[in-house]
Each structure stands twice: as C-alpha cells, then as structure tokens.
C-alpha cells in the first residue's frame, strides 16, 4: 500500500539512432521490471535531444542506451553532453549492444558513461549494478 515512503528505481531505456534491433533492450526491460523497477521505454529511432528531454521529464536515475549499429561513438558522447548542459550530470548512464572494448573504455573514461555492458551480459549483473548505483545516490 502506498503508505509510507515508496521509493522506486526508475530507468529510462532508449534506442538512439536508426538501429531497430530491440531484442536486447526488451529483455533487459523485462528483467529490470521483474526486479521491481519502473522501466520507461522510449521506442525506436530517438534523437539524442529528444531522449534526453524525455529522461528529464521522467526524472529517472538511470538512462540505459542500446545501440547495435556502430553509431555509438557519434551518439553517446552527444547524449552525455546534453545531459551535462541540462544540469543532469547526476543521471547514471549505462550502455549496451555491439560496442567494442576500445570504444567502451573511451566512453567510460572520457565521456562519463558509468558502464558498458557487452554482448552476453547476464541481466542479473545489470540489476545489481543499477541497485548499487541507486543506493549510493
């Protein structure tokens, strides 16, 4: 019952760019939902501007980006920049899809992505990571 404090982890899962492969993002969405989180899904083909605006309106703690098309190095840095410009640098950004290790390291070290989950990641690892980040917030 919505009595005392009822805090929920809110996650915005987004598909930036033209990539339409959503098998992964839907599976992650379901796993996070089953872990008790509120998962907002953007739908496909979002521009960085639109998805950042939506993430702000939804006031999520976590922004998850799924990209399999190879456009990650163009799209993710732009999203990070927009978040900072909107004074929302505290949103935890995670990414997944087809992102080679070299690129993942750059995204984390230079652009402030919290973590890149590679192919074959166990969804429980993502759940645990999100919980840990949200507890620290």
């Amino acid at each position: 019952m919505r009595g005392a404090m009822d805090k929920k982890i809110r996650v915005f899962l987004a598909k930036p760019g033209l990539d339409g492969h959503d098998r992964g993002v839907l599976i992650v969405g379901q796993a996070l939902r089953d872990a008790g989180m509120e998962v907002i899904y953007s739908g496909l083909k979002q521009t960085p501007e639109n998805l950042v605006e939506a993430a702000l309106q939804e006031d999520v703690g976590i922004l998850g980006l799924s990209i399999l098309s190879g456009a990650h190095m163009a799209l993710i840095p732009r999203i990070m920049e927009l978040l900072r410009e909107s004074d929302a640098g505290d949103v935890t950004v995670i990414a997944g899809g087809v992102i080679p290790n070299d690129d993942a390291e750059v995204l984390v070290a230079e652009h402030g992505v919290a973590r890149v989950f590679g192919p074959g990641t166990d969804t429980r690892e993502i759940v645990a990571f999100i919980r840990e980040r949200e507890e620290r917030r």
Partner: peptide, 26 residues
Amino acid sequence: FTGGALLGDRVRMQELSGDPEVFIRS
C-alpha cells in the same frame, strides 16, 4: 508480484517528443 512496471506509452507518442511545451510523465 514485483512492484515493477514496463511503461511504454511514450512509444506511441513519438511525434510529441522534443517539444518542450509537452510534458509527459509515465
């Protein structure tokens, strides 16, 4: 059972996205 939810209404409201005069909350 879990208290979680999948909120997908935005998917069908894409033509509104990016408009600062529309505030959508799921």
